[in-house]
Simulated scan of single mutants.
Amino acid sequence: MIKNVAALLKAFQEREIEAIQRSGISHAPTIGAQYEGMTGSVLKMMIPQELELQVVSGFVEGVDGTLSGQIDGMLVRGSGTPIPGIQ
């Protein structure tokens, strides 16, 4: 039984995980993308819009201009720097 928002989000997450498993896809990068997409969707539902936060993937740029490895999911404020050739 769903009694609060946390239980609602958990139920949504469980339904999405079942859909991923039923898809029959065995390609690891695609499965990873499915889980990342599902996690991002759940997080987006949880974050109040007035906070102006986004769930994104990309790289973190250090103060010296160096880039981190690719980060699958980050909670950020602002638009960042677009990567050429990627929307």
Rank of each mutant, 00 (worst) to 15 (best):
A7R: 11
A7T: 11
A7H: 15
A7F: 09
A7G: 15
A7Q: 13
L8P: 04
L8C: 09
L8Y: 09
L8H: 11
L9P: 00
L9T: 03
L9Y: 06
L9K: 02
K10A: 08
A11P: 04
A11V: 10
A11L: 07
A11F: 05
A11N: 10
F12K: 10
F12N: 09
F12Q: 14
Q13T: 11
Q13R: 12
R15P: 09
R15N: 14
R15A: 11
R15V: 15
R15L: 14
R15S: 10
E16R: 13
I17W: 02
I17T: 12
E18N: 07
E18V: 14
E18P: 05
E18M: 15
E18I: 08
A19S: 08
A19M: 10
A19T: 13
I20Y: 00
I20V: 15
Q21P: 04
Q21E: 09
Q21D: 11
R22A: 04
R22K: 10
R22T: 15
S23F: 02
G24W: 01
G24S: 02
G24N: 00
I25F: 08
I25T: 11
I25Q: 07
I25G: 03
I25P: 03
S26W: 05
S26V: 14
S26Q: 07
S26T: 14
S26C: 09
S26G: 05
H27R: 06
H27V: 11
H27Y: 13
A28P: 14
A28Q: 12
A28I: 12
A28W: 07
A28C: 08
A28H: 10
A28R: 10
A28F: 14
A28T: 15
P29N: 08
P29L: 06
T30G: 04
T30D: 09
T30C: 08
T30A: 10
T30V: 12
I31R: 00
G32Y: 03
G32H: 05
A33M: 10
A33V: 07
A33L: 12
A33G: 11
Q34L: 08
Q34A: 14
Q34I: 12
Y35M: 03
Y35Q: 01
Y35H: 05
Y35N: 03
Y35L: 15
Y35I: 05
E36D: 11
E36G: 12
E36K: 09
E36Q: 10
E36T: 08
E36H: 12
G37A: 07
M38I: 06
M38T: 11
M38C: 11
M38V: 14
T39M: 06
T39W: 04
T39N: 13
T39A: 08
T39H: 06
G40W: 03
S41H: 14
S41C: 07
S41L: 07
S41F: 06
V42R: 02
V42Y: 01
V42P: 00
L43S: 01
L43W: 06
L43T: 01
L43R: 01
L43P: 01
L43C: 06
L43N: 00
K44H: 07
K44Q: 09
K44D: 15
K44R: 06
M46G: 06
M46N: 06
M46Q: 10
M46W: 04
I47A: 01
I47H: 00
P48C: 01
Q49L: 15
Q49M: 13
Q49R: 11
Q49W: 08
Q49I: 05
E50G: 03
E50I: 12
E50H: 15
E50A: 05
E50M: 08
E50K: 07
L51D: 02
L51A: 00
L51R: 05
L51E: 05
L51G: 01
